[in-house]
Write a protein that binds this DNA or RNA. Structure first.
Length: 214
DNA sequence: GAAGGGATCAGCT
DNA sequence: GCTGATCCCTTCA
């Protein structure tokens, strides 16, 4: 079993979602390399999760990637924005992780140009981070992570000081699972969506290792 | 700096 | 037609 398969299966999706926090997500874009540490993600638990795209086994051309092998990339649009998911659990078990926030590392100049914004506004939301990466289509939907230009580095990365869980964003009036605490984020990181300025830890950005200057 | 509402569009039904 | 796993701008503090 390769490392991607092992990382994205064999344990509860809630746990995998917490494990991706601090991992480096990168994209070798036509304009250059862009990357960032994952600081916020949500778990979607498939057929039994009333907030999930695969609730009650719903399966269409659009959400087919959720049924793929662990590590399959699921890209879909919402309100004209592109969202980035990673399918987890074995093939035909349609669970997934939505990446909602990144702390930029490489290609910050490219992301600034793509977004027309600066600072935490670069990547503090699921549509924003895709826009920052310059991804405006579903070209990589259904492809495997680490097999193409989109990669996740499972061997290095940073350690969150504290992980906070909350209800998922944008899933009001979605049945029993509406209030389930399947959103996880790095406490105090400025690139978490909706993070209030007074809750940001300017010194560490919520990481346990080396401190920041800015 | 918080809150509210319009924009926007692919993928259903 | 209608609906969001959203974003952005405007308004009011």
């Amino acid at each position: 079993m390769d490392t991607i398969t092992a990382f994205f299966s064999g344990k509860p999706t809630e746990q995998i979602t917490q494990n991706v926090l601090g991992k480096l997500l990168s994209y070798q874009s036509p304009s250059g390399l862009v990357s960032g540490y994952i600081v916020e993600a949500e778990a979607y638990l498939g057929a039994r999760d009333s907030a999930a795209h695969a609730y009650q086994g719903r399966r269409t051309a659009a959400n087919e990637a959720l049924y793929g092998a662990p590590g399959t990339i699921y890209i879909y649009t919402l309100h004209g924005q592109y969202m980035f998911d990673i399918a987890v659990q074995p093939k035909d078990e349609p669970q997934g992780i939505l990446v909602r926030g990144l702390e930029p590392v490489e290609g910050i100049d490219i992301m600034t140009k793509n977004r027309g914004k600066t600072g935490s506004e670069l990547t503090n939301g699921p549509g924003k981070l895709m826009s920052a990466f310059g991804i405006h289509d579903k070209q990589w939907n259904l492809t495997m992570i680490n097999a193409g230009p989109i990669k996740i580095d499972l061997t290095t990365g940073r350690q969150p000081r504290q992980i906070v869980s909350s209800a998922r964003v944008g899933v009001s009036r979605r049945g029993d699972a509406t209030d389930a605490p399947y959103r996880y984020y790095v406490k105090g990181n400025p690139y978490v969506s909706g993070m209030k300025k007074r809750d940001v830890d300017l010194k560490t950005h919520g990481w346990a290792d080396e401190p920041f200057d800015n």
